[in-house]
Each structure stands twice: as C-alpha cells, then as structure tokens.
Computed example of a mutant assay.
Amino acid sequence: MTALIHPTQAQLTEADQKALTDLYIRGTPANTLRAYERDLIYITAWRNAVFRSAPEWPEREEVALRFILDHARDLSTADISESARTAAEALIAAGLRQSLACPAPTTLDRRIASWRAFHRMKNLSSPFDAPLLRQARAKARRAAARPIVSKSAKPIVRDLLHKMLATCEPGLRGMRDRAILLLGWASGGRRRSEIARLRREDIDLEEFEPRGLVWIRLSETKTTARGMTPKLVIKGSAARALVAWIDAAEIQDGALFRPISKAGRPLARDLSAEGIYQIVKYRLEKAGLSRDMASPHGLRSGFLTQAALDGVPIQAAMRLSLHASLAQASAYYADVDLDRNAATDLLE
C-alpha cells in the first residue's frame, strides 16, 4: 500500500515523497487503510486476470468501464469461455471473490472509490469521472439494487439488554461482559471495533465520585477522524459497571477490555472485535435466546430504537451515537411502530 502513495513524483524530492506518504498513512483511519489494501489487491488481481498486466496510472477508461461491466451482472449464466467469467473464477480460487453472483452495489462502489482515491494519491485524474463511466456506474447500481438488510436481525432494546445482563454471573468474566454490554449500549451504541480499541487512558473517572459520570474518549470512529471525536459520557448502572470492572481487574493502563484466562485472570492483551462479537452471541444464548437474534450492531441499533420509543429527540441521540447522517439515524426512528411513537400521544 505504501508503494502506491507517491503523488507528484516528478515534482517532489525523495524525502518529500516519503514525508507525504507518512502523512497519508497517519491521516487516514486504520479501517480505511485496510480497505484500501484489500481493494488494491483485488483490483490488481482482476486486471492481471483480464488484461495480463498490472494497473496503469492513470488507468485507461476502457479498463475502468470493463471493471464496471464485469461486476454488474451474474456471471454464473455467462459462457464458461468468457473472459469475465474466467477472471471471476480465478479471483474465487485466490479467495478474493465469493461467487460468480453479481457483487453488491455497495461493494462495487467501495472498490471504485478506492481506485479513485489511488489516483488522487498520485495527483492524477480518475477515469471513473468521465461522463460515460459515471452513467454506467449509476445504471449498474440501479440494475443490481438489493433490499437493505439490517446489520443485526433485531435491535437490542432495553428489555432485551436487561435479559442479557441478567446472565452476567459474579466474577471477572461476568463483570467484564456486563461492562462491555452497558458501555456499548449506553454510550450511544458503539461499534465492536470501537469498544475493542478502548484503552484505560481513554477513560476519565474524575467526575465519577462527585457526580456519577464517566467520560470516554474514542480515538476515532467510522465517521470521525483520529483526534476529532467528541468525548462521550455514561452514567448510572453503565458507569458503575465500568468502574467495577476496572477496579476488580486492576486495569491501570493499556487495553480496557481483555480476555480472561482459564484461571479467571485478565490477560495483558486486548480483547479483539471478534471477542466482542462472541460475547454478545454468548449472552444471547445464556438468556435462552437464539444466537442469530442479534449481533453487536444490535447495541447500536437498539440504542437509537429505544431513544425513538422513549421520545428522545433524534438530535440528542445522535450526539452520543455520532451518526454523521441525519437520514441514516432517522431510519432507526422510522422502524419504530407508529402506534408506539411518542408523537402520537401529544394531544393526550
């Protein structure tokens, strides 16, 4: 990935190129860098399979158009000798593509967005900005449109959360899981990656004793850049659960949430995002519910859904959820049954 980022090679010294590359890396969220890397691998493999050569900079418009056309249809019905199908099968064999089915429009959009970003990094115009390519993208998006599928089968609203919390047994494991569930929900519905990245240094307990408040500083989120995320606050049972975990596990610094050993001791390493996923599934199962009922994203959707049910103004909920788009946050409010919407009781 770092070899790709050399914007104006003819105008910059080697030292400037190195400094600018470092700036791009430091100024780009880690998740975005990983997505760029995956997309670059995919684009390179696809181009080699179809054109027997690596990407060019700037890329030719006919190559970009071919990329859109090859990813805007179901190739399982294509002739086995067709180059688009042959290339797709090579990508499947390499573990870069799942099937011959038409990829989701969002997947195509993301890969094109990455390809355009690679051009910007090199201070080059993108072929995808050409009128024909822009129209082809729009048509491909419409042709392959799919119903929106929720990231969690069911939002973890307050009643469901309490059922999961009731399964958190005494001991460090139960205290940790309780703190994770409550912090993840009450702080605005945090993504599992955000929970996993939390450090003890991100938790401010100065106002816990006098006011019962715990302040949280996220390093970055999906919608905010590193260092630009506003501080969040939790109170009540969520704050007490987090402080209880910190005290019992004697977390002085480093990872806030950690795996528990078989001997019942917290380990020194971070609890991964996958670990958060498994905790949510485990607590659902312990509550006598299906593991498939919800995912960690259910904490996020559950927070906003509960806010809607309780009549909390969406702007207030968004100050904690940190949604960048009012339209996206509004979707959770729209999911609330109309007869349970607090606005229907205004006359009464």
Rank of each mutant, 00 (worst) to 15 (best):
residue 102 C to F: 09
residue 289 L to Q: 01
residue 300 R to A: 05
residue 295 S to A: 15
residue 73 R to P: 02
residue 14 E to T: 07
residue 246 I to M: 15
residue 4 L to D: 12
residue 48 N to Q: 07
residue 99 S to H: 07
residue 173 R to N: 11
residue 227 G to Q: 13
residue 237 S to H: 09
residue 185 W to R: 02
residue 220 E to P: 01
residue 216 I to M: 03
residue 2 T to Y: 07
residue 208 F to L: 12
residue 269 R to W: 07
residue 136 A to K: 03
residue 41 I to S: 15
residue 333 Y to P: 02
residue 12 L to C: 09
residue 4 L to K: 13
residue 113 A to L: 10
residue 288 G to P: 08
residue 273 A to C: 13
residue 31 N to M: 12
residue 135 Q to R: 14
residue 39 D to M: 01
residue 51 F to Q: 05
residue 32 T to G: 13
residue 185 W to D: 03
residue 4 L to Q: 15
residue 203 I to L: 09
residue 31 N to P: 05
residue 107 T to K: 06
residue 247 D to Y: 13
residue 296 P to I: 00
residue 226 R to Q: 13
residue 133 L to F: 04
residue 138 A to C: 04
residue 310 D to Q: 13
residue 209 E to Y: 12
residue 15 A to E: 15
residue 96 L to E: 11
residue 259 P to I: 04
residue 62 E to Y: 15
residue 190 R to M: 15
residue 274 E to R: 13
residue 281 K to W: 04
residue 10 A to H: 01
residue 133 L to G: 06
residue 281 K to Y: 08
residue 342 A to C: 06
residue 206 E to R: 15
residue 183 L to E: 04
residue 338 L to V: 07
residue 66 R to Q: 10
residue 283 R to D: 06
residue 167 T to A: 11
residue 148 I to G: 14
residue 243 V to T: 03
residue 72 A to R: 06
residue 296 P to V: 02
residue 182 L to A: 02
residue 66 R to C: 10
residue 296 P to L: 10
residue 247 D to Q: 14
residue 134 R to N: 07
residue 63 V to D: 06
residue 307 A to F: 08
residue 238 A to T: 01
residue 128 F to Q: 00
residue 223 T to K: 01
residue 267 L to G: 07
residue 146 R to N: 11
residue 28 T to P: 02
residue 326 L to P: 03
residue 98 Q to I: 11
residue 49 A to K: 03
residue 172 L to N: 14
residue 197 R to L: 13
residue 314 I to L: 15
residue 61 E to F: 02
residue 284 L to G: 01
residue 79 D to R: 12
residue 188 G to Y: 00
residue 141 R to Q: 09
residue 222 K to Y: 09
residue 106 T to A: 13
residue 270 D to L: 04
residue 267 L to E: 11
residue 166 A to M: 10
residue 271 L to I: 15
residue 106 T to C: 04
residue 104 A to E: 08
residue 66 R to T: 11
residue 221 T to E: 03
residue 202 D to K: 03
residue 252 Q to P: 01
residue 284 L to A: 11
residue 130 A to H: 14
residue 40 L to E: 10
residue 10 A to D: 05
residue 25 I to F: 06
residue 151 K to V: 13
residue 324 A to F: 05
residue 248 A to D: 14
residue 80 I to C: 05
residue 228 M to V: 02
residue 69 L to A: 14
residue 170 P to H: 07
residue 231 K to I: 09
residue 284 L to V: 04
residue 224 T to C: 04
residue 251 I to M: 05
residue 170 P to F: 07
residue 310 D to N: 11
residue 88 A to L: 07
residue 37 E to L: 03
residue 307 A to Y: 03
residue 175 M to K: 11
residue 264 G to Q: 06
